[in-house]
Design a protein around this nucleic acid. Sequence first.
DNA 1: AAAAAACCTGACCAAATGGTCAAATCGAGC
DNA 2: GCTCGATTTGACCATTTGGTCAGGTTTTTT
Lengths: 226, 226
Amino acid sequence: MEAGPTRADAGGSGPEGDGTPRTRIQEKNRARILEAALGTFARFGYRGARVDQIAEDAGMSKSNLLYYFGSKSEIYKAVLADLLDRWLAPLRTLDPEGDPRTELTAYIEQKLRFSADYPEASRLFANEMLQGAPMMRDVLEGPLKALVEEKSQVLRRWAACGRIRPVDPVHLIFLIWATTQTYADFAPQIEAITGTGIHDETFRRQALQSLTDLIFAGLLPRPGSP
Amino acid sequence: MEAGPTRADAGGSGPEGDGTPRTRIQEKNRARILEAALGTFARFGYRGARVDQIAEDAGMSKSNLLYYFGSKSEIYKAVLADLLDRWLAPLRTLDPEGDPRTELTAYIEQKLRFSADYPEASRLFANEMLQGAPMMRDVLEGPLKALVEEKSQVLRRWAACGRIRPVDPVHLIFLIWATTQTYADFAPQIEAITGTGIHDETFRRQALQSLTDLIFAGLLPRPGSP
DNA sequence: AAAAAACCTGACCAAATGGTCAAATCGAGC
DNA sequence: GCTCGATTTGACCATTTGGTCAGGTTTTTT
C-alpha cells in the first residue's frame, strides 16, 4: 500500500483548490495577486475588472496569474473572503458590559480607521452591494444579520437601562456604517470639497469628533448648555 | 447666399450632436435608452456595462442605439448629465430663513425620497465615485463645492445664532448624504438585515424618524427628559 | 546530481465587445 | 402616391478578453 499523495490537489495543473498556500512562493504570489485584484475590483467592479490588468498590477504574466487562480471569478471570491472578516471584525468588539459612549466611540473610530487604512476594501464591498451582492447574499443573510441582531440587543438593553435614548438600533448601525464608509467610498467627493481626506490624520480626527459629537449630543441646543 | 442647413448636425449619420431631440421618435427613443443605460451603468459601472445589454433593455437593436448615441461614453455622459441636476436639487432648497429643524428634516426627507424613487441614479452616482469620478471631477470641484460652501455658511449662521449647536457643517452634510444614500446604494445589505427596504413607505418613515431623532436629539439621555 | 515537483511563459483560441456601413423601411408633407 | 429625410436593421470588422496548452525553467526532494 503506497502512501497517498502528500501534497497533490484536485487538479494537476496548478495550486488551485483551497486557499491554503503550500510553498513560500505561492504565499507571496497569492498575496500579490489578491492585493492587485482588490484594487482593480474595487475600482471597476467584477465585470469591469480585466484579468490582465490585475496581472500587470501584480507584476506577473496573465498566464502565471491563472496558474494560481484558475479563473477571474475565483480571484474575486478569494478577495471577498479575505475582505469579509476584516469588515465585520470591528462590530464584534462592541462590549455589552462597557460604557455606551466609550464602546460606540471606539467602534466608530475603528470603522474610520478601516476606511483610512483599507479604502479599497471598503470600495470593493460597496461595489458588491451596487451589483446586488451576488456573491455575498448568504453572508449578509447569515453571519451579518445574526451579528447585527446580537448587537441590536445590546443597544436595546442599554436603552432599557436609560444609558442611551431609545433609538432604533438597526438604523443607528446603518448610520454608523454609512457615515464611516462614505469617507472611503466617496473619497473623490470628499476631497473635492474639503481638499483633503480620511487618509489625513488631522482630518480623521475632525471626522471622528464631528461624528461622535453629532451622534451623542445631537444638533439641537441643549437646555443646560449655552 | 443660400440659407444655412436648418437642422443638420456635425455628422450626417444620425441625430447625434447636442442632447435636444428633434422629433417625437427621437424623444421617445432617447428616453428609453437613457433609462436602460441608467440601470445598467448603475449596476456594473462604466466598464462593466455592455452596450448590447443596454440596447436589449431599451428594446432595440444595438445598431439603432448607436444611431442615437454615437458611442458608449456618449450614453454615459448623457446619463450623468441627466442625473446631476436631480441629485443636487434638494440641497438647493435649504432655506436660510427657515427653521433649522424644519429645513433639515425636509432636506433629509427629500434625500430619502430620492433614494426610494431613483435608487439606480443613486447607485450610478456611487459608481462614479468608486471609479474615482473621472467624468465628474469638474462638477464636484465646481458647482457642488460652491453649493456646499454656500449651505455651510447657512449652518454656521444658524450656529452663531444659537439655533443649532456648533458642529462642523461639512461633516454634517456628509452625514446626511451618507445616511440617506446608503438605503439605495447598500439596498441588498439593508434588505438582508431588515427584510424590507426604502421602497416601502412604512420603512421610509421609520428611517426618517430614526435619522432626524438621532441627528437632532443625539444618543445620550437628555438631562430634562427621563 | 538526478529526479520530481513546482513554477513560469508565449503562442494560441473562441467568444465577446464596441463600433461601422450599405441597404432596407418608415412616415410626414406635397 | 411620391419624395426625401428619418429610422432601423443585419452583416461585418478589429480589438479585447477570459482562458488553454505544450513546453521550458527553477526549486525542492531524494
